[in-house]
Design a binder for these strands. Sequence first.
DNA 1: CGGAAAAGTTAGGATGTACTAACATTCTGA
DNA 2: TCAGAATGTTAGTACATCCTAACTTTTCCG
Lengths: 228, 228
Amino acid sequence: MATPSRRDTPGALTGQAEDYLKVIYHLERSGEAAATSDIAAELGVAPASVSGMLQRLARLGLVRVERYRGARLAPPGRHVALQLIRRHRIIESFLATKLGYSWDDVHDEAERLEHAASTELIERMAESLGHPTADPHGAPIPTVEGRVDERSLRSIAEMTVRETARVVRMSDRDPAFLRYLAGVGLTPGVEVTIVAIAPFDGPVELRIARKRVSIGAAAAGQVFIEPV
Amino acid sequence: MATPSRRDTPGALTGQAEDYLKVIYHLERSGEAAATSDIAAELGVAPASVSGMLQRLARLGLVRVERYRGARLAPPGRHVALQLIRRHRIIESFLATKLGYSWDDVHDEAERLEHAASTELIERMAESLGHPTADPHGAPIPTVEGRVDERSLRSIAEMTVRETARVVRMSDRDPAFLRYLAGVGLTPGVEVTIVAIAPFDGPVELRIARKRVSIGAAAAGQVFIEPV
DNA sequence: CGGAAAAGTTAGGATGTACTAACATTCTGA
DNA sequence: TCAGAATGTTAGTACATCCTAACTTTTCCG
């Protein structure tokens, strides 16, 4: 009856500590070390809590911290983060494909399940989905070995007039944003052509499957594309 | 990125506290208040830890404790326990039916997921299964309102020679025990007829689908039946 | 360049949960 | 019945995590 620990790998971490590693992973993608205040903002905790946790994670060999200068993942920490991201994206795919969740609604559920699901469950889900390589928002799913295609993609905001490209992915964080995108027809896989770009960060007008839509510059910067 | 809390209902409990309520629910089915040491044994914690937790749960109005005499669930605690059991059994059914888990292997996974899954996920699973009323081990699934058919069933050990009955359920706790039962053909739904009962708690010989098998008295006491 | 603002850390405390050791109560059997 | 066994509780401690308040370091701008 006691809740069994999920951890199949040695060195059990709590879900909290795991979340820190995931956040550091994402922040670090900018190239800079993850800043204490950014981690705090991302997790919704006080900066002081982050300082404390970073010391613990450093003691465990999961991150390298330079005092006053932020944190970077050590290889074992990176591995944990990548497996968590794998879990997250497989769960999102499963919920959307097998349980009728809409793509804007899968994030929070996955955020909780990724800490509780066993590796066996994750792999069974992956198998029942035919081992997908991207989640419903187009984010690439790391392999069991921790390989992931993290090319930095161009966004719609970086396209030029008359250019055509295929939408690859978008952030999964804000359900309302995702619903908006789906509403105007922007989902992974569709082709878009830039019709016009208003100056001074103005809206971008584009064609999606014969329809004209106009989206704000901020939104355009959150939708990533690749050459057709 | 912060792990969102599962709790849709007010008064969030941790998974640990929830486990205590579930254990008390099961122990209380005997009619007696749940004893500190029994709760401790079930959860794998020290009796002192149970005393502490019972005080907290009592303060929250979830259990009623009589010092030195054990705990009983208060109505709100009973509700939490029943919903947890509903979650557990729906998850077990889902894993077995939709993800190819074997019935002896679903318990631990469900034990962790029941604390992390949202009510929405549970209801989507239930729906995709056609709203099952029993889990793979034959245990009844409480309704959303908290109703559950908890008749106390007779076990094979209480049958008499030449009597025939249908297997309804068995304990889901020990995977090896479940594999053994499946091996001799004892699964929910099959009919058994008692051929002989050795005296002094000796083995019970029975016929299952034309085959003769002999099981120990202890095992016979763990397999529950109803009249055909 | 130097002081104020921003960012980060430490100190000290709260909560939930666990432990062991010591003490208290209840049960049980001769 | 009553003493020892069994059971339960309290006290004191530990750890993970959070907080606020006070302090330190870094950054930035006039």
